[in-house]
């Protein structure tokens, strides 16, 4: 299932938890891992100067500098790499210059991984080089266009991981969710784990501020359960254990709560918002909120 993992890292603390998951997965599934780091963002028109993402200094990139950054990464991940070596895991360290989301996507196109692993936010620091001249986060942009599933680990809690045995699939019944469902089923089959299908009935704003009566809520829950049965259950013949639920509330909160209750090791959701560039969408879609809050890794699927 996961033979090639592209681990895109800032090589800072923000990516430490993702690193743990990425290396663990490589080990567990005998995958090759490509450690990919965007070291600098171009500045100054056609000049050769780039802004180093870590030091925030303006540097001129040459082979020597690139070799030095690669060495730094090797040192940063020395423990993991040593372990990887002892398990005969193939790994490669690559660095690039450019806007992070674009270079991650370029490398994904080039390396064709089965999974991209991304760390959490590097912070809202105004000075952050990652934010230069681009609105919206690296995560949003990669999630929107990734050619393969994208696994994000944001909280440290999400990285203490002993394999995958419980998968939560969150659906909003969209077309993109169908793709996420397919992936969840394959994963559950492949890894022989339990699959929990979940839908959250959004009662926060869908009725223009009108409060729903409890009868209305319950009738909609029944309707959603019918949809789950009709749409998904027929496909679960080869899955040993599964369950499905619909809860009402604020969708991302409910998904996180549900995952906690199910001791989920992984949440799978679709990413299908059209607009990523709108700043007002800073708080983002449900999946972005889930990523920020979840106690386990989250996989985003967009097609």
């Amino acid at each position: 299932m996961f033979k090639k993992i592209l681990f895109a890292t800032s090589a800072t603390e923000a990516s430490d938890h993702a690193a743990r998951v990425a290396f663990n997965m490589a080990q567990a599934y005998d995958a090759s891992i490509c450690i990919f780091h965007v070291l600098g963002v171009p500045t100054r028109g056609f000049s050769q100067i780039v802004m180093d993402v870590k030091t925030k200094e303006k540097v001129e990139i040459d082979d020597e500098y690139i070799a030095w950054v690669k060495e730094e990464i090797k040192v940063y991940y020395s423990k993991q790499l040593e372990k990887a070596k002892s398990y005969n895991i193939n790994y490669d360290i690559k660095v690039a210059v450019g806007f992070p989301h674009r270079e991650i996507l370029r490398e994904a196109r080039n390396y064709s991984p089965d999974l991209i692993v991304l760390g959490g936010s590097t912070g809202d620091d105004e000075d952050s080089v990652y934010k230069k001249s681009m609105v919206g986060s690296t995560l949003q942009r990669v999630a929107k266009a990734a050619p393969c599933p994208l696994l994000v680990v944001n909280r440290p809690a999400a990285s203490f991981w002993g394999g995958i045995s419980q998968i939560v699939f969150g659906t909003d019944f969209s077309k993109a969710s169908d793709a996420a469902f397919k992936f969840s089923v394959n994963l559950a089959k492949d890894l022989d784990c339990e699959l929990h299908i979940f839908h959250a009935l959004d009662i926060s704003n869908m009725h223009m501020g009108r409060l729903l009566t409890q009868d209305e809520i319950e009738s909609q829950i029944r309707e959603s359960l019918r949809r789950i049965r009709g749409r998904y259950i027929g496909e679960l013949k080869e899955i040993k254990d599964y369950s499905f639920d619909v809860w009402e509330g604020l969708p991302y909160v409910e998904i996180v709560k549900y995952a906690r209750e199910k001791h989920a090791d992984l949440i799978v959701m679709a990413h299908h918002t059209q607009k990523t560039s709108n700043e007002d969408a800073r708080l983002g879609s449900n999946i972005e909120q889930v990523i920020v809050r979840a106690g386990c890794p989250v996989i985003s699927i967009n097609k």
Binding site: R44, G45, F46, S47, Q48, I49, E60
Partner: peptide
Amino acid sequence: GGGGGFNGIG
């Protein structure tokens, strides 16, 4: 302020 190549010259 950066025309004519000015932007790119270190």
